[in-house]
Structures are given as C-alpha cells and as structure tokens.
Simulated assay, not measured.
Amino acid sequence: MMVALVMALVVVASLLFHFLSPWRPTPIASNWGFIDDTLALTFIVTTFGFVAVVLFMSYCLYRFRHQPGRRSTYEPENRRLELLLGGITTLAVILLLAPGLAVWGRFITPPEGAMEVEAVGAQWSWSFRLPGADNKFGATDVRFIDANNVLGVSPADPRGRDDVIVANGELHLPEGRPIKVLLRSIDVLHDFYVPQIRAKMDLVPGMETYFWFTPTKTGQFDILCVAYCGVGHPQMRGALIIDSENDFRNWLAAQQTFAQMKKAEAY
C-alpha cells in the first residue's frame, strides 16, 4: 500500500516540478523554432507514457495486494492486450521519431545561396574562416598547421589567399541571412553548440560536418563545446556576435586575409 502511494506521489511531484520550474529554454535567436516544437512534442508523448505506466503500476500494487485467502490465476497470453499495447507503443514511437526526422532533414539542407562560414575546433579553442571576394574556400590540410597557420590553409591554393581568418574565437555574422556552418576538427571530437540558435553538431576528425540557420536577433551568444574533449573542455568557449548588415561588413573589412597573414609572417 505504501509503495503504491509513493509511486503516485512521484508522478504528482514530477508534473509539479515540470510546470512550476523556473528553468526554461533560452529565447530563440534563429529560425529553428521547429526544434523547440519537436522537443515539446517529445515531452508530451513521454509524459503521457510516464504517467500511464507509473499510475498503472501503482494501481496494480494496490488492487492486487496480498490479502488472506486471495489466490492468483495464471494467464499465459492475452492476444487482445498484446495488440493494444503493441499498437500504442508503435504510435508513440512514430510520434517521437517522425517529426524529428523531418526537422533533421531541414536542418542539414541549407537553402541555395546560403553564406558559408567554417568553424574549426582544437583543444581548446575555436577559430573561424570566411570566404573572400571569390566566395570560395581554399583547400586545407593538417600538414600545413603551425603557429602562423592555425587552420591549415594550403599556401599553394590561390582560392585560399583571400580567405578571412579569425583566430580569436569571436565570430560575427549578419542578421537575417541564411548561414551554412562547415565544421572541422583538427585533433579530437568536439561539438559546436549555441543554445539560443538551437544549433548543435559534432566536429569529427577527418571529415567535414555542417548545418545551417538564419540569425533572427542581433546580440552576443556563447559558442560552447558540448563533447568532452580533454581537461580544458570547460574553457572551450567562443563568441557568436550577430550584427546588422552594415556592422558585419565593417567588421569583415577589418579582418586579415590568409595572404595578409602570410605577408606579415614574412616580415
């Protein structure tokens, strides 16, 4: 009897904690409200499942508790019950997976003409690269990485000469323009995450991953690494600054290109 009561109280306490909790998602600063909608649907489906299962167990503990003279009966199978439970489970799984797959498909399908930017993770800092006037990135190779070429841009590729290199962990982007973020790691597994953008993607050594978003609010947001990448992992932070179009152009004009960095190195 006591166990059944405690289980029912756990359900009530869990629901109260969820609805009365002051902790809520950060305000959305991109077009990915679809991700919040999918998470909300997940909460709804799993909440119904949690409440139904725990209350049913609580009911069974009370209803079929031991009483003197009561005997149990053995029922090897119940086809009707199995079909009902199987159907409910199948429907719940579809409700959980289908919206997520649809949103994921959109998340990795950037629109035509999206602005490209590269984010590179290394223990334990973020660096960035934007294409220059030719709107093309130069080739990269880890063999070219050194103190003066942190991204490993190939000196032999003319497309990389006008690439804009940002090595201070501060990335500026324009408001209202679709952005395709190319992700690359030069050592271990990292994960690019900006909570307000609802954007999260692994950086896998040896391959390039990507996603896209459209910034909808100006301001400064933290770029976090949320894959444990060594002892300096908690300090691996960057800054994403969303500017107006004019402010972004002014910032971009003040950045050094790869060719300028190599020229300064020569002197």
Rank of each mutant, 00 (worst) to 15 (best):
N149M: 05
R129Y: 03
V120Q: 15
A227M: 13
M115R: 15
V51P: 02
R24Y: 10
E265K: 11
V93D: 03
L189W: 11
T89P: 06
T42P: 05
R24E: 07
F43M: 12
T89Y: 15
I44K: 13
F144H: 07
C60L: 09
G152F: 01
F17W: 14
G176Q: 03
A98D: 09
T38M: 07
L151H: 04
I28S: 05
M7F: 14
R237K: 15
S154H: 09
F213A: 00
Q255E: 00
D191S: 03
L130V: 02
S14T: 12
P99N: 07
R143A: 05
W23Y: 12
F213N: 00
T257E: 03
R249E: 08
M57I: 12
N148M: 15
P195L: 10
P205T: 01
A156L: 08
F64P: 00
A199K: 08
F19M: 11
A13M: 09
Y74D: 00
G33I: 07
I241M: 02
Y74L: 05
T214Q: 01
W23F: 14
I28F: 07
D222K: 15
Q255C: 01
K136G: 01
H190S: 05
D243K: 02
L130G: 00
L173F: 11
A29V: 05
G176P: 03
L5M: 09
L5T: 07
L16A: 02
L84G: 05
V142Y: 13
A147P: 04
T257R: 00
L203G: 02
H172L: 02
R143W: 13
I145L: 08
F17G: 03
L9G: 02
P215Q: 05
G86R: 11
D146G: 04
L97S: 01
E245D: 05
G219T: 14
L183F: 04
Q220T: 10
L101M: 15
I242N: 00
V226Q: 03
V226R: 03
P27D: 15
G206M: 07
L55R: 00
P178Q: 06
N246P: 15
Q255H: 06
Y228R: 07
Q256S: 06
F107L: 05
G230M: 03
V194Q: 03
F34N: 02
D191N: 10
T140I: 12
Y210S: 08
R143F: 08
V3R: 15
G113F: 10
W23E: 06
I28V: 14
N168S: 13
D163I: 08
E82P: 11
F221E: 01
Y62Q: 05
A264K: 15
E170A: 02
P205N: 04
N149I: 01
E208D: 13
R80Q: 13
R80G: 09
S72H: 15
G152S: 05
S14L: 04
T109W: 14
F211H: 10
W32M: 01
S154T: 11
V181S: 04
R198F: 04
Q235A: 14
R70H: 10
I88C: 10
E118P: 06
A253W: 13
G69T: 05
E175Q: 14
A199N: 12
I88H: 09
